[in-house]
Write a protein that binds this DNA or RNA. Structure first.
Lengths: 141, 141
DNA sequence: GAAAATTAGTTACCTAGGGTAATAGTTAAC
DNA sequence: GTTAACTATTACCCTAGGTAACTAATTTTC
């Protein structure tokens, strides 16, 4: 499958630019959206949970969380364990999630025009497998 | 196709890290590799050609080219038009291309393990189409 | 139950990578 | 021959993330 990475990667920049543009209407970027997305799907969470999910370091999430707090999109809630900070979406945050979710899904449908359902599903299924293969390969070291 | 972008994008970081790691053996990163790759496939080229191909700005390519020149991987050749700078791979550059090409193709094959040929091809074909749809959508503005 | 180890989050500093605007030099257009 | 357009470069800025060191809180260990 020579050239697969080349094709995969050349889509990245146009796509992430498009998403960032879409999200900038709400003062967001894709990296901030990831946190909102996680909180919407998983409910109140700690920073470590989010960092683990996205395979990024803790300071990265600290930064994202601070920005979202300033924007009143998320807020901390009390925790038993006083080391950790549990955050959840505010009402504003939930509203923004819904609005952006619709826009992103619209975009997803739009860029899929002219592509058969079979191809879409094949690609959809392939990503986690590739990720798992890379993860397993990293493990092996 | 809700969730497609999410899946596509979560593969990016692991993959680009893996490639950068692989290329770091030769003092390279994926962004530098792109220039080598282009020169290998297209022969001597100007910076503008490369910038257009990868949809990045000219200063981005200026920087990459300077680094590759320092590493003696590429060299300028005389041009009729004295505004432009034509660069090509050196012998060392061609050698590095071959070595890395093999390693990258090996990695491509390896991360494809357990994925059917049909799925691979479907994904392979879908990327340019998605890119074209995004491009067309941007055009429309 | 006190000391040591671990954990969550933060801060400070650094790096990669790319964009914008302005500029010099060169060529094309008229 | 003057103006416009083009190539490459420079300077400056932004986004995004990583590493190392640190604080505070909690577990583990003995």
């Amino acid at each position: 499958m020579e050239g697969f990475f080349q094709r995969y990667l050349s889509l990245y920049r146009p796509l992430i630019s498009k998403l960032n543009e879409l999200l900038s209407d709400h003062g967001l970027s894709y990296s901030l959206w990831q946190v909102i997305f996680y909180l919407n799907n998983n409910g109140p969470s700690t920073l470590v949970e989010i960092a683990n999910y996205y395979n990024v370091e803790k300071p990265t999430i600290t930064r994202r969380v601070h920005r979202l707090e300033e924007m009143q999109i998320i807020k901390p809630i009390p925790s038993e364990d006083r080391r950790e900070k549990i955050i959840q979406l505010t009402d504003l945050g939930k509203e923004i999630y819904r609005t952006c979710r619709i826009k992103i899904t619209d975009l997803e449908n739009h860029v899929m025009e002219g592509i058969t359902k079979e191809e879409q599903l094949a690609a959809y299924h392939i990503f986690p497998k590739l990720q798992e293969n890379i993860r397993a390969d990293n493990e092996r070291e």
